[in-house]
Design a protein around this nucleic acid. Structure first.
Lengths: 338, 338
DNA sequence: ATGAAAGCGCTAACAC
DNA sequence: GTGTTAGCGCTTTCAT
């Protein structure tokens, strides 16, 4: 019942508390022989250092924060990846809601950074681009790793994908199939990925000497409803596109639903492509052609950065953004035009 | 920079540390006047009690554990609900992976309960039905709240829905539309919800004096692939069903995809109903008729139970399972048979 | 109703 | 390479 402490291990191993501490933290200056002895006793006694005692006494807390505000496949996979990385390294993941629309965000953040002990925080869009959030974390000396940030890109570690290149690849896929009138539904303008995906789309067209028809580029916010609206406008055009590339899968699903509701067949009458490869992209009929983002790997990488830097006083300089590769997943929603 | 501590507040308010502690914990035996003074100073100094110091010194940790192994809409919504509840009450949510297929689950659990300080843990199927997990938590004196457990139902608080009643309602919906040959794809047999949904299905049929044809009841595991397989077998029957009720939405999506791949039209040739109301149920065409489970509310309720019991020595007896209501969501995937 | 003293289990800063 | 001594910021217990 009574849990075993560092002194129990020290006594049993015939060494001091501090030596046990050194061994448990894999610090140098311990004879191999002593190290093994301590490790043996620790295992025998099933000793586990208490997170709360460690974070109270030391400079690190063995906890990583993850900001989560909504349920989205994107965020969930990143969280799971971060969770796995934390667990592998003996860390814990504390999830915190950060509500950008809070009446007093500054105070919320201040409560978060002062009450909780975390070695770093993982931030996703749009939270990762909020100045108040970033400022509060900064002031508290809590490093943060951001996934696909749009602003302040010099401000600490970044994990992202090559959105522009990926969008170019998926547009090329459509072009290769023979499509020439391709519609695009954009993401929110304040989201870095949106802008870069549009750019990739443009460059792919330009690569074939094509000018994008402005009418074929519709605004969106990554939400389903805006996919529906964009598709509606696109398909009502006098000369409608034969293919639509939605900047994320949720909107792509909306495009497919709208097309089917209008009696169009996918992919015979309209090809549809998305971005993200959320689970349902592979669960509908026809399957959605899309770009797979390695969200779990990215979340894990973000956690790794925090973990490896934890305990160190200085950040080892502004490393270049960590870039992960996307993978084109071709399913039934894309085919040559009639 | 240097964060404010309880002594700072005590000094500034002209009282002892202990009085500040009493005020911060809303304990009795403090004069109203003093209480207000302390509260005022605390606010002024932006004082936030440190979680790590509290959990080290006291009996409670202000942290709730949430076991998460996979990304599923079901789990994610429960997590978000729990997260919100924790945040509202000044608690933090620590997510932990519990891998039932681990080579040494007992040791994993032992590490979890000894290293971390949590006031309770929220468990979902199938983790909530594992004897090793439950045993380890029990031994460490960590209360757990389980969502829809199948086993050991006397073992602490339970949060669930009336799966049987809900399945009955959705089957009745199909019967009301005029369907008489209704296929069922079951969930995994070790999952409480599966069994009860089957029972509800049976009772609904019996309510109309119908005998379920055994060939119309197909096994499944809640995973997409098994939905595909079940649908395949059902639709290959000499006298195929005119409607299929899949025990969860993921399998229902598979049924729709399979039907459409076979050239059948939903709902004209086949009605499909699911269970859960995951996001994609409303994003496909036609929309999936399903039962909405209030997962976020359930997760929040689970967290609330842990929070309100935290600090208390004894659990106030085995309360009856907390039951939440489901809601039938009728979309385009169900219609009268031809 | 309030306060003083004693830790909780660990790491930090030094000694040796 | 190893041990000693102090705390970290709270809650606890026990006085008053």
């Amino acid at each position: 019942m009574a849990s075993v402490t560092i002194t129990d291990v020290a006594r049993r191993a015939g060494v001091s508390m501090k030596t046990v501490s050194r061994v448990m933290n894999a610090e140098p200056h311990v004879r191999q022989e002593v190290r093994e002895k301590v490790l043996h006793v620790a295992r025998e006694l099933r000793y586990r250092p208490k997170v709360s005692a460690r974070s109270l006494a030391g400079a690190r807390s063995y906890q990583v924060g993850f900001a989560l505000n909504v349920v989205s496949p994107y965020a969930m996979h990143a969280q799971l990846g971060a969770l796995r990385a934390c667990h592998d390294r003996g860390f814990h993941l504390v999830v915190e809601p950060i509500d950008l629309s809070s009446p007093d965000l500054a105070s919320d953040m201040e409560a978060l950074v002062n009450g909780l002990a975390i070695d770093g925080m993982i931030l996703l869009p749009p939270v990762c681009d909020d100045a108040v959030v970033l400022g509060a974390l900064d002031e508290a000396g809590i490093p943060c790793v951001r996934l696909a940030p749009a602003t302040a890109r010099e401000r600490g570690p970044i994990v992202e994908v090559d959105d522009e290149g990926a969008a170019r690849i998926i547009t090329d896929h459509l072009l290769d199939l023979g499509h020439r009138r391709i519609g695009l539904i954009q993401g929110p303008p304040n989201h870095a990925a949106s802008v870069r995906r549009l750019e990739g789309f443009r460059k792919a067209l330009a690569g074939r000497g094509l000018q994008p028809d402005p009418a074929l580029i519709q605004p969106g916010t990554f939400y389903y409803r805006t996919g529906l609206e964009g598709a509606e406008r696109l398909l009502a055009l006098p000369d409608p596109p034969t293919a639509i590339f939605a900047s994320n899968d949720e909107m792509a699903l909306a495009v497919m639903a709208k097309a089917q509701a209008l009696g169009l067949r996918v992919p015979e009458d309209l090809s549809v492509a998305g971005f993200d490869d959320i689970a349902s992209a592979g669960m509908i009929w026809p399957g959605l052609t899309t770009m797979r983002q390695p969200m779990a790997d990215m979340g894990a990488a973000a956690a790794e950065i925090i973990i490896s830097r934890s305990g160190k006083t200085s950040a080892d300089g502004p490393a270049a953004p960590l870039r992960f590769d996307c993978e084109l997943v071709v399913r039934g929603s894309t085919a040559p035009p009639r």
